[in-house]
Design a protein around this nucleic acid. Structure first.
Lengths: 138, 138
DNA sequence: AAGTTAATGCACTTCCATTGCACTATAATT
DNA sequence: AATTATAGTGCAATGGAAGTGCATTAACTT
């Protein structure tokens, strides 16, 4: 039984062939990818299946969804030990306006935010837009 | 000549009747609004016109666009003296998952973010999701 | 192996953002 | 004031992405 199969089972997901492949594809990425990107990697699979696969991953804490401000949802595998639910564990994301790639800066945690009275924070999303190291040429 | 007309002219925008009305409508709001909201306020005007009006406002620094993670763009008038372009002037936004309203917390500035080498920041977007004071009942 | 439950694929819908083009109003020029 | 240029507005249509319903197929259970 492969590593991926074990991982999926551990998270309470039935390890189908499709899911293993999608997991593998996500693991290959060094950036967060859009559903369309995944779709291009699996021309034979249906978009809906990929959509639901990713959603399932998300619900089970295997993937986190990133809103980088482009209006297109991006997805990335959670790091080992990542706990997306815990606010303190949230990291920031960087979106390159040149190559349009979005990366997780997992080592950069989001600072504590103070809110006005009566406001209750459940989730924090911090996206920095600019030029990534690949594009800035430095 | 009305205040609004003057404001528009100062920003280099031709002060048409439509634009003054849209400005007025935005000024009334205490939250950031979606294009659809503006559309509902002006049933006689075309959606495209409103769309382009808001875009014009945005390009000329009268309005800033907010991506609150719902996938729907929200717009809000810039505060007097607001300079959306200057990174230090960026404030955070709060999106209530109960009433679906998005507010600008202009007094809450975004802390300085450190990035890995080679990354150049141009813009920072910080959205906190949770329950707003109206909905939390406190 | 039979039956139950979940996953997949297809078709379709919805929602918002955006564009092209014709028409109209505004501002500039004579 | 009439003419021309420039910019704004409205209508129609397109496109992209997210999401849903249902029939089919595959995966687990006993």
């Amino acid at each position: 039984m492969s590593d991926i199969t074990t991982t999926l089972k551990t998270k309470g997901i039935r390890p189908t062939a499709m899911r293993s492949l999608v997991y593998q594809e996500l693991a290959k990425q060094d950036t967060a990818v859009a559903l369309t990107d995944i779709e291009l990697a699996f021309t034979k699979a249906d978009r809906t299946t990929l959509y639901r696969t990713v959603k399932t991953f998300e619900e089970n804490g295997i993937v986190h969804q990133i809103d980088d401000g482009t209006g297109i949802s991006k997805y990335a595998l959670c790091e080992p030990g990542c706990n997306c639910e815990i606010e303190n564990d949230l990291h920031l994301h960087f979106h390159c306006s040149n190559c349009d790639k979005t990366v997780c800066l997992t080592e950069h945690k989001i600072p504590q935010i103070s809110l006005p009275d009566g406001y209750v924070a459940e989730d924090v999303n911090l996206v920095v837009k600019g030029i990534c190291s690949d594009c800035s040429g430095s």
